[in-house]
Design a protein around this nucleic acid. Structure first.
Lengths: 111, 111
DNA sequence: GTAATCAGTTACCTAAAGGTAACCATCAAA
DNA sequence: TTTGATGGTTACCTTTAGGTAACTGATTAC
């Protein structure tokens, strides 16, 4: 069953500890490196730097360097990144229901 | 934004290298430990053992020990596990489209 | 009695993800 | 002129996921 390859691709793109948090931060309007960094507690510059590169490669964000005095960069979400919203919604939805199953009830065996 | 907690839950349940492969194997009708192990190339007994425990805790499968001579166990998927199909479908779907974006086209910047 | 099956466990090792902290250059304000 | 902001990089360390291989005890087949 390597029909799972596309599933793996998706999990690689949104997996890990920080990618979704960073994506949401950018969706919320944070544009600059330090701005994004400050918006996410405990996130280090090193990890942010690496994740932003990954996300740029995956066309989730764009990076624009503004030539000016103390070098400004601007990160922006792509349209493509917006297509993740549905996926995230489903993950969220399932997670909610899963918690109910795990902590709320008892029996759910099949056949 | 800790509205991401349920998303994290879901990713924990289906993430990692083997969980989905094992789940599919059980969905396909493999019931016994060695049977599942043989159905997935490169999967080791140690990892399978650990993953099955996780999946049992998460109510994705049930484990039944049949008292008999060389000790048989039976693993079966739960109804709850079936609710993952929709999630997996979305992940699959997005993965397919993502590949098209990445390898097929070029421009997709926002605003 | 030897091998092979069942269902795992145990100890050890490698690889990848992530964390910590110091550092770079450039510029503006105090 | 020192401090702080800009956007990062570098080297090193820890933690977690996963891999390798040997081994257990019970049973059947040879």
């Amino acid at each position: 069953m390597s029909a799972l390859l596309p599933v793996r691709d998706t999990l690689d793109v949104i997996g890990g500890k920080w990618k979704l948090l960073i994506l949401i931060s950018v969706w919320e309007g944070n544009k600059h490196f330090r701005e994004i960094e400050r918006s996410i507690p405990k996130l280090s510059t090193k990890v942010l730097s690496k994740e932003l590169k990954d996300m740029e490669e995956n066309h989730l964000i764009t990076r624009t360097v503004l030539n000016g005095s103390p070098v400004r960069t601007e990160y922006a979400p792509t349209e493509h990144s917006k297509t993740l919203e549905k996926v995230i919604f489903e993950l969220h939805n399932w997670g909610i229901n899963h918690r109910k199953k795990i902590f709320g009830e008892k029996s759910d065996t099949v056949s």
